[in-house]
C-alpha cells in the first residue's frame, strides 16, 4: 500500500516500497544493457574512418558544387515517370485493397473464421515487404522498367490502405447500419448506404496519404531498375558524377515538397 501511518499521520507515497525498488532495478538493467551493446558496437567500428568522415564530407561536397544545371533537361521525363509510378501504383492498390478491407473488417467479413485470416495475411505480407524488395523481385519477373515499379508500389500499398480502411470500417457507428438493415435492404445495399458514406472521409484521407508516401518511395525504385528518377541517380553515382547527383537530389526534394503541398491541400478540402 502506498499509504503508511506514522503515528497519527497518514503518509502517502506514489508507489509502495517494493514497486519503487523494482522500478530502480529495471532502470539499472536498462543502463547496463545499453553499456554492453555500446561496447560491442565500438569494437566493431573502425574509428579511424569515423574520425576521417568530416574531411571526406568536405571533399565530396566540394566536388558536388556547383550542380550541373544543364543536366536538368534530362530529368523531366524521369520525374514524370516517378509521378506516374506513384499515382498508378496507388490506384491499382486501392482497387485491390478495398475488397480486402471489407473482407478483413470484423463487422463486414463474410466469415470471421476462414475469410478474415486470409485477408489479414494478405495485409501483413504486403506490409512486411518493403517496396524496394518487391521491386527487386518484380524486375527479375517482369523485367526492368516502369511496369515493375507500378506493381511494386501497388503491392506494397495494399496492406497499408487495407489496414487503415478496415480499421475505419470497424469503427463506424453501428446504429446507422442497423437502421438501414431494418428497412429490409439487401447486404450490398447496407454496405452502400450504411457503411460507405461513413468511411468516405477516412478513405479519401488514406488515399492521399498513401499517394504522398508512394511519391517518396518511387524516387528510389530506380536504384534497382524499376524506373523513375532513381535510375538517373544510380547512373550518376556509378560514374561518380557528383554535380549531377546534387541536381537530382535537389530535384527530388522539390518534387516531394510539391507533392506534400498537393496532398495537404487535397486532404484539407476533403475532410
Amino acid at each position: 500500500m502506498p499509504v503508511s501511518s506514522v503515528g497519527e499521520i497518514q503518509v502517502w507515497h506514489r508507489r509502495a516500497r517494493g514497486k519503487q525498488l523494482a522500478i530502480w532495478f529495471g532502470w539499472l538493467c536498462g543502463v547496463a544493457l545499453f553499456m554492453f551493446c555500446w561496447n560491442i558496437i565500438s569494437e566493431k567500428t573502425t574509428w579511424f574512418f569515423v574520425f576521417d568522415a568530416p574531411r571526406i564530407v568536405g571533399d565530396i561536397s566540394s566536388r558536388m558544387f556547383p550542380p550541373r544545371w544543364s543536366y536538368a533537361e534530362k530529368l523531366w521525363l524521369p520525374i514524370w515517370d516517378t509521378m506516374n509510378i506513384a499515382t498508378l501504383g496507388t490506384i491499382f492498390s486501392i482497387v485491390m485493397a478495398v475488397p480486402v478491407a471489407f473482407l478483413a473488417a470484423r463487422n463486414t467479413t463474410p466469415s470471421a473464421k476462414f475469410v478474415r485470416p486470409v485477408a489479414l495475411l494478405i495485409i501483413v505480407s504486403s506490409r512486411s515487404i518493403n517496396s524496394l524488395i518487391w521491386a527487386l523481385l518484380l524486375v527479375s519477373i517482369v523485367g526492368p522498367g516502369l511496369f515493375a515499379g507500378v506493381i511494386a508500389i501497388s503491392l506494397r500499398s495494399i496492406g497499408f490502405v487495407a489496414k487503415l480502411l478496415y480499421e475505419a470500417i470497424e469503427e463506424i457507428d453501428q446504429n446507422q447500419v442497423e437502421a438501414i438493415e431494418a428497412t429490409g435492404a439487401s447486404r450490398i445495399q447496407v454496405i452502400a448506404f450504411g457503411i460507405v458514406p461513413q468511411i468516405m472521409p477516412a478513405f479519401a484521407g488514406i488515399t492521399v496519404f498513401r499517394w504522398d508516401i508512394n511519391i517518396r518511395e518511387s524516387t528510389v525504385l530506380g536504384l534497382v531498375g524499376a524506373g523513375g528518377i532513381g535510375l538517373q541517380l544510380q547512373a550518376s553515382l556509378n560514374v561518380l558524377a557528383w554535380p549531377q547527383v546534387t541536381l537530382i537530389l535537389m530535384a527530388i526534394l522539390c518534387f516531394v515538397l510539391a507533392s506534400e503541398l498537393v496532398s495537404a491541400r487535397v486532404r484539407k478540402a476533403i475532410i
Partner: peptide, 26 residues
C-alpha cells in the same frame, strides 16, 4: 440513426431500399 453524411432526402429514400434494386438505389 440517420446516415449522417447523406442528405435528408437520401435518408428518407433509404426507407425504400427494400423495394428498389441495388443499382437503382446506388
Amino acid at each position: 440513426a440517420l446516415v449522417e453524411r447523406l442528405s435528408v432526402m437520401e435518408n428518407v429514400l433509404s426507407g425504400q431500399l427494400g423495394y428498389v434494386g441495388f443499382w437503382r438505389s446506388y
